[in-house]
Design a protein around this nucleic acid. Structure first.
Length: 259
DNA sequence: CCCTATGTTCCCAA
DNA sequence: CTTGGGAACATAGG
């Protein structure tokens, strides 16, 4: 269930193993993912991330774009004989095999032409983005948490990091986006960058099943202040962390110091 | 049986 | 037209 830091981790690790390498074979186990015969024989010239999507640019000028959605995983193996449980497709290289595993089958793979895609900023809600974002927010009455999760506004923030960002900025998740003050937007920008970058350094959050390309867990779960911590003490004020459902998503927050 | 799950898209009502 | 809310997608685990 990767968000920006997890996909960024996969990107960096993919570059270590597939950059410049030739795709020798592709096996599609789940036909729902589609067929990509033009990928065979192509070399991977770049690996990049767009929000939570991962792009592998081929020397044909097209790019394979993968979105892992809720349960998708990528795994690099130096041995491969039979499809693993829930495996959806495999790319074979001389040096190893790239496996996509996805129990819930929501992940998508598609063609993209990278040259025509405007690249959004690598990280969402950077300081320079604030005028645009706060102008958009000014006419949105949705909860600020829903606004942070809107991938068309800023790409990459998911449910765990939205909870963590709002806690770090001391903002109530249900607060309407249009009601945030300029100072609150400044705080949001500052904590978003630091939380996401710290999570990338920790190779993602393994709170349930996230594993990186080489099957290792991340370390960022150690740094979570509210997500998954209902009933624990808020590290800032000591009040008990609560959980409620907002827009169908579990929302963890401190009812005392998030206003 | 119930609920939950790190995501996105579609449908519908206002 | 926009906005916002809920269901749907499909599966596993508690």
């Amino acid at each position: 269930m990767p968000e920006l830091p997890e996909v960024e981790t996969l990107c960096r690790q993919l570059r270590q193993v597939v950059l410049g390498r030739q795709i020798l074979e592709m096996e599609v186990i789940d036909a729902k993912i589609g067929l990509f015969p033009e990928a065979i024989g192509r070399r991977i010239t770049a690996v990049h991330r767009l929000g939570k999507s991962l792009g592998m640019v081929l020397d044909s000028g097209r790019a394979l774009r993968l979105h892992l959605r809720m349960s998708g995983r990528l795994l690099w193996r130096t041995d491969y004989h039979l499809p693993l449980p829930h495996m959806r497709f495999m790319l074979g290289f001389e040096e190893g095999w790239l496996l996509c595993i996805d129990p819930r089958r929501f992940a998508t793979l598609s063609w993209a032409s990278p040259s025509r895609c405007p690249r959004p900023p690598a990280y969402p809600l950077l300081k320079g983005d604030l005028p645009r974002i706060s102008a958009l927010a000014a006419r949105r009455r949705v909860a600020v948490k829903a606004f942070l999760l809107d991938q068309t506004v800023m790409a990459g923030i998911g449910n765990i990091y939205a909870c963590e960002i709002l806690h770090a900025a001391a903002i109530e998740p249900e607060c309407r986006a249009c009601d945030l003050t300029p100072m609150q937007w400044e705080r949001l920008a500052a904590v978003t960058a630091s939380i996401l970058k710290k999570a990338v350094r920790a190779r993602g959050t393994s709170i349930s099943d996230w594993h990186d390309l080489f099957g290792n867990k991340g370390e960022n779960q150690r740094f979570l202040k509210v997500y998954g911590r209902r009933g624990e003490a808020c590290p800032r004020c000591g009040a008990s962390i609560e959980r409620k459902s907002l827009g169908g998503r579990g929302t963890f927050y401190c009812p005392s110091c998030q206003r």
